[in-house]
Nucleic acid binder design. Structure first.
Lengths: 247, 247
DNA sequence: AACATGGTTTGATCTGTGTCAAGTTCTGGC
DNA sequence: GCCAGAACTTGACACAGATCAAACCATGTT
């Protein structure tokens, strides 16, 4: 079972109702009763995106929704083309809830084939007003996003390439382990997971170049901390060492 | 009139009531009616801090409040001592509203003599529940924080030292210009303002070393873009050039 | 006034990461 | 299965920014 290439995207039955939504138990929708879900259901619409496809461009009218399957990337771009990936959005994550006004504050694109449950913005605002639980779930969600953003600022501003790549791997491994079940299990030696990003995307996420990322991967491999299978499949051989390298 | 050293901190009459609060018109409190303000007033308490003083340490029970006067710094620290300033909080900014649970997610310290209007956490939660306007103002505030954090990620990950320092100066100048009156006025050549931070703090904010920050300052001065008066007072001679340098 | 102190600037050198340029390995289409 | 193009790795080299060290300068103290 791979993360980046679901066997057949079209074979996945898109959950048409919130009741059967695989992302619900971990998304902001989890706080809603069956009755309240109907209100959301009415303004929800599923959209599919291929890997690499753009969802919205910075400045466009924002898209609002919950990731159901796959993975989205938010990136912010400098006028000369340099860009920084600002966040990775996994299943159950809210997207665009933090865009001020009606305008997207970043480019949004699919890293892997992705299903997004998008909400009508006006309808969502209305739902927020009538469902206090939803509103506070949104606040919670934003808190978590802010904490993540701040963690990443620490990484970008202070960590060196080795620490950056190690941190990245640990975060991803964690996310892969815990995405299926609700139980949080620790990463252990021997765990295998997929990197749903290319080297260029990893580089843009870490504030490095492709080449440096690649070098660190092979460095970790030579030191027996990880084992690469192809370019996107990783086995963690020495969690402790990886943790140490992450600083 | 200096930003960092008010003539006499004790001479400032602390606004004891929200009604006379200088920060109200721009803080989250602005959305509340006179009546609703009473509810907040009841749980508010003013606290003063000297420059350099710690307000809370990461992991302590969070402090929640609005900056009335002065400036606070939030910093996150790596185990080996390296640290990154995660945000600067100016008058009217909310502090601690984004801490998950009850725990501060960063160190908070005063950069200049500061007056903080702190709220009782439980009381504030209650106020949030009973005052929907306040809740959505909080969401707005968090949106803005998140946008700022993301802008800074772009800076930390992609900009070089020259761009970082130029960006920093522009941001500060802006903030200084617009802190008194409500009208947003553009920065123009000849504008003078104070830097309420030492070089070490600037460095920690930009992900650079003290020495590099210092070198960029003198570089800008040699190029006639700015003029330093002492170490903390800056005159901007060429806004356009600074903007260009900021990328 | 001389002094101690902490912050800042400046200089010399080192180093990690970027840059440029080949190779090499994957991947998907025929 | 083979081929073309893209993605990745590896190497040689350059350079921005870090590090180490020494002046320099404010500011308050005796």
């Amino acid at each position: 079972m791979t993360l980046n290439v679901p066997i057949a995207i079209d074979a996945i039955a898109a959950p048409l109702t919130c009741a059967s939504c695989s992302a619900r138990s971990k998304s902001i929708c989890r706080v809603l009763s069956a009755d309240d879900l109907h209100q959301l259901n009415a303004i929800a619409r599923h959209r599919r995106f291929e890997a690499g496809q753009t969802v919205v461009t910075e400045g466009d009218t924002a898209v609002l929704g919950v990731v159901v399957e796959g993975m989205l990337i938010e990136r912010r771009t400098l006028s000369d083309g340099r860009d920084q990936i600002i966040s990775l959005r996994f299943p159950a994550d809210l997207v665009g809830g933090s865009a001020p006004a009606e305008m997207a504050d970043a480019n949004l694109e699919a890293a892997t084939p992705t299903v997004l449950c998008s909400f009508d913005k006006a309808g969502f605002e209305q739902a927020l007003n009538s469902l206090p639980h939803l509103q506070s779930a949104l606040v919670d969600q934003m808190r978590r996003e802010l904490t993540q953003a701040r963690d990443w600022m620490l990484l970008l501003g202070q960590k060196n390439a080795r620490e950056k790549v190690a941190t990245f791997l640990l975060r991803l491994a964690d996310r892969s382990r815990n995405r299926h079940c609700g139980t949080a299990s620790d990463l252990v030696d021997g765990d295998l997971f997929e990197i749903p990003l290319g080297r260029a995307q990893i580089a843009a996420f870490l504030g490095l170049t492709i080449e440096t990322v690649s070098r660190k991967f092979t460095e970790f491999q030579k030191q027996r901390m990880i084992e690469l299978n192809g370019t996107r499949s990783v086995r963690v051989n020495d969690v402790a060492a990886l943790r140490a390298a992450a600083g």
